[in-house]
Computed example of a mutant assay.
Amino acid sequence: MAVIQATDADFQSVLQNNERVVVKYFADWCGNCRLFSPKFKRMSENEEFAGVAFVDVNAETSPETRKLAGVTNLPFFAVFKNGELVEGTATSKEEYVQDMVRKLS
């Protein structure tokens, strides 16, 4: 599944249309965010995570969506199940993000 680009305008719709969602909050100036992008895309294409929506949100241009997950630092990852925040953390470790997504099963 391709990574979905979301903003404040459509984020609630993404949550409503997908039972399990993992969000990467980023900023254009964030080097670690850019370095994580190919890993996030690869995760979205992994069969193990079929049925999970992978979403990119620019934290600078989507303040309401950023507040919803309590973003403190970038890159920040949050997992939602049935529209509710399950967990969120700032990390650059792919294994940690994978573990977060596995908890959604």
Rank of each mutant, 00 (worst) to 15 (best):
T89L: 14
F49M: 02
N58M: 11
Y25M: 10
E87S: 05
A6K: 02
A27L: 14
V55K: 08
F76A: 02
L35F: 05
A69V: 03
E84K: 14
F26E: 12
N18L: 09
S62K: 11
P75M: 10
R34S: 08
V57W: 04
Y25V: 12
D28H: 08
V97I: 09
E48M: 13
E84R: 10
T91W: 03
E84N: 07
A59Q: 10
S37C: 03
K39F: 09
A59C: 11
Q98F: 05
V79Y: 06
G31Y: 00
R66V: 12
R42M: 04
L15I: 13
R102V: 06
V79W: 07
T7P: 01
F36L: 09
E94W: 08
Y25D: 09
T65N: 05
E45P: 05
T91C: 03
N17S: 13
A69Q: 01
S44L: 05
V55P: 03
N46C: 08
A90Q: 02
R20P: 04
T91I: 08
L74H: 07
S13W: 00
L68D: 08
V14A: 02
V97M: 03
D8S: 11
T7E: 06
M1V: 09
W29H: 08
C33P: 06
R102Y: 09
E95L: 02
T91R: 03
P63C: 09
A9R: 13
T89G: 04
G83L: 03
F40S: 00
F80H: 11
D10C: 01
V86C: 04
P75T: 11
Q16H: 05
N73W: 14
F36R: 10
V71C: 05
S44K: 03
